[in-house]
């Protein structure tokens, strides 16, 4: 494979989640993290999953990633059943999960080294391309602990993009960052999504973040984890998190969210 092929903008993937159920047994009883959840994610769609903590949105992401298996139901990636992790679906975690024994370049190279058909010189070139894309080409030899929180997540993004996956799964990747850094990354992720067309499933508990990034926002409710509502966000990109139009969407979503969380509160009281 040549470097051009390694960097080619491959077609994003279609994901079908079909009747997925998953429960966990803890010492306080059984929690139904996902209850017969079905979703279709189109090729190249930016889908956001929103909900209070414990509503199963991260579990769903892990199942799509192949890190968890559902109790019943199945996940199809481009028509093929997901049985484990695959290079077509890369994950970005809330904790950056970068390896401290490698420098920045080494971390981005980790997944590339496992990708066949490239020699090391080409792998390095690919890694450098993505480090440049996230604006960190000057830091390729830095140690991980020397980077700020935002920079670490940029490296994690470059690492996830480097093997050229068709799907990017993001599990609250910006939750631990400060507001200013987060705003910068909203811009970056939209720009990168334009440049490297991927199907993105993005988990967050931040409604505004979801409205800013998603083509579509799915609202989850906890125990049993179900999809409660669906919102289409028809705003031009790049979107500004502080815009008034965006606020309208996020207010609408927040109202719906409050609607069922309050209702659940009264149900519990009865």
């Amino acid at each position: 494979m040549s470097i051009e092929n390694a960097l080619i903008n491959i077609a994003p993937e279609r994901i079908e989640i079909d009747g997925v159920t998953k429960s966990f047994t803890t010492n306080r009883g059984t929690i139904v993290a996902l209850d017969n959840v079905s979703v279709k994610v189109a090729e190249g769609e930016f889908l956001c999953l929103v909900g209070p903590s414990g509503c199963g949105k991260s579990t769903l992401l892990n199942i799509i990633a192949g890190l968890d298996t559902p109790d019943s139901g199945r996940v199809l990636a481009n028509g093929e059943s997901v049985t484990g992790p695959g290079r077509d679906r890369m994950v970005m975690f809330q904790e950056h999960a970068l390896f401290p024994w490698l420098d920045v370049l080494g971390n981005v190279m980790f997944g590339l080294r496992l990708k066949p058909g490239l020699n090391n010189k080409e792998r390095k070139e690919v890694a450098k391309y993505y480090l440049d894309l996230v604006g960190l080409s000057k830091f390729q030899h830095a140690n991980i602990h020397e980077l700020s929180g935002g920079m670490k997540q940029r490296v994690a993004l470059a690492r996830a993009l480097a093997p050229n996956p068709r799907v990017l799964l993001m599990d609250e990747p910006f939750a631990a960052l400060d507001a200013l850094t987060r705003e910068q990354l909203y811009g970056d992720i939209q720009r990168i999504w334009e440049a490297r067309r991927k199907t993105i499933v993005f988990v967050t508990h931040n409604v505004r973040e979801a409205a800013c990034l998603g083509d579509r926002v799915l609202l989850f409710s906890p125990n049993p984890g179900r999809i409660r509502a669906e919102f289409q966000v028809d705003l031009p990109r790049p979107r500004d998190i502080n815009s008034v139009e965006l606020a309208r969407y996020s207010t609408e979503i927040t109202t719906a969210l409050k609607g069922f969380t309050n209702k659940q509160g009264t149900e519990a009281a009865e």
């Binding site: 992790p85 994950v91 390896f99 980790f110 997944g111 093997p163």
Partner: peptide, 23 residues
Amino acid sequence: IYLRAARTMGSKGLHTWFKVILP
């Protein structure tokens, strides 16, 4: 989380032992 991250990038078996667990 290191193991989970490594798995998503296609690391398994001996590779995980020598490139993740050991370092």
